[in-house]
């Protein structure tokens, strides 16, 4: 294989990975939330708040890591509102999630006005003087930051947590039946609050990566529905953390492809082209339902939300 082809593939791979990273965090977080039987449409709002707060702190301190941490904490704090409304006040989960989203949309639009056009210190690239000499690998590392490897680690950790640990088993049990879980001495509400906060933390972190690392700018409503896409991708990934990775990468790849087609002068309305990632994911969803005809992987208690 020619070096040139490998270089092109590597460039596409990096672009895909970078585009998918914020989505991987958000989708992973929502997967964990849905596994305990809660749906959180506020993921969009948590990402947005994470992006806004993370960017502001990054600009103010000049330290991108502090920005990312602040974004994650902002997302977790906002998710507590959803937890309080749903578990404390017994609110409808869909309504509560939409409220969280709208609150974040309004607040970030207002607060974020001063952030437009600001510069943030980016995360350092992974490449060093030592690796720069290596062909292709050096090139790849110099274009990458720690964000993408962190996303991979998060996926592996979440899969291990759910499938190999006792608390993970408790989470799954709560998602299948809070009643049976309680009979076995588990406190479903405590588990659910924890999972919702972890979901908010990951969504906020993903949002902060979007503003601090990926685009390095702030714009009003900059998540453009990624949080809602994350809620949908959970279904495509069949509620399995391990499948979050390929599903988000597929979405990212299609996004990169449409951007590159546009810049290559492909003659189709950019608006139509922009729908391609959603169409591809929809096709995967339909296909996965046709080929996996066995019982749905949906947590049983989650079904109650829609009844």
């Amino acid at each position: 294989m020619s070096t040139e082809l490998i270089a092109i593939l590597a460039s596409w791979g990096i672009a895909t990975l970078r585009s998918a990273t914020p989505l991987i965090f958000a989708t992973l977080g929502e997967t964990l939330v849905q596994r305990v039987g809660i749906i959180n449409l506020g993921t969009e709002g948590e990402m947005l708040l994470g992006a806004c707060v993370g960017f502001a702190v990054g600009v103010a301190t000049g330290n991108p890591w502090l920005g990312l941490t602040a974004g994650a904490l902002a997302g977790a704090t906002l998710s507590l509102l959803h937890a309080g409304l749903v578990l404390g006040a017994g609110a409808n989960q869909i309504g509560s999630g939409l409220a969280v989203w709208m609150i974040a949309l309004g607040a970030t639009s207002y607060v974020g006005r001063t952030l437009v056009g600001q510069q943030v210190t980016p995360l350092p690239a992974l490449g060093t003087d030592w690796t720069d000499g290596i062909p292709i690998i050096g090139e790849v590392l110099s274009q990458m930051t720690l964000a993408a490897p962190l996303a991979l680690l998060a996926v592996i950790f979440a899969a291990w947590w759910l499938n190999q640990t006792r608390p993970g088993l408790h989470w799954k049990a709560v998602g299948e039946s809070a009643l049976v879980a309680a009979e076995n001495g588990i406190r479903p509400t405590r588990v659910r609050v924890t999972a919702i906060m972890v979901g908010g933390l990951l969504a906020g972190f993903g949002g902060a990566i979007l503003s601090v690392d990926y685009t390095q700018t702030w714009a009003q409503e900059m998540t453009k529905g990624r949080g809602l896409v994350a809620v949908g991708l959970v279904i495509v990934a069949r509620w399995k953390p391990a499948l979050v990775l390929p599903v988000c990468l597929l979405f990212g790849l299609t996004e990169v492809a449409t951007l590159r087609l546009q810049s290559a002068g492909f003659e189709l309305s950019p608006h139509l082209l922009g729908t391609a990632p959603y169409l591809v994911v929809l096709a995967v969803l339909v296909a996965s339902h046709i080929f996996a005809r066995r019982a749905s992987a949906m947590p049983a208690d989650l079904k109650a939300v829609f009844q």
Binding site: Q164, T165, R166, P167, L169, H170, K172, A173, E176, S177, V180, A181, E183, N184, A295, A297, P299, A300
Partner: peptide, 24 residues
Amino acid sequence: SLLPALSVRDNLLLSWPRTPFWKS
């Protein structure tokens, strides 16, 4: 009071008082 979606082993581990943290 079994969870049909979980494996037999997981169902047994769920109510077992001696389940360790790492349940692999």
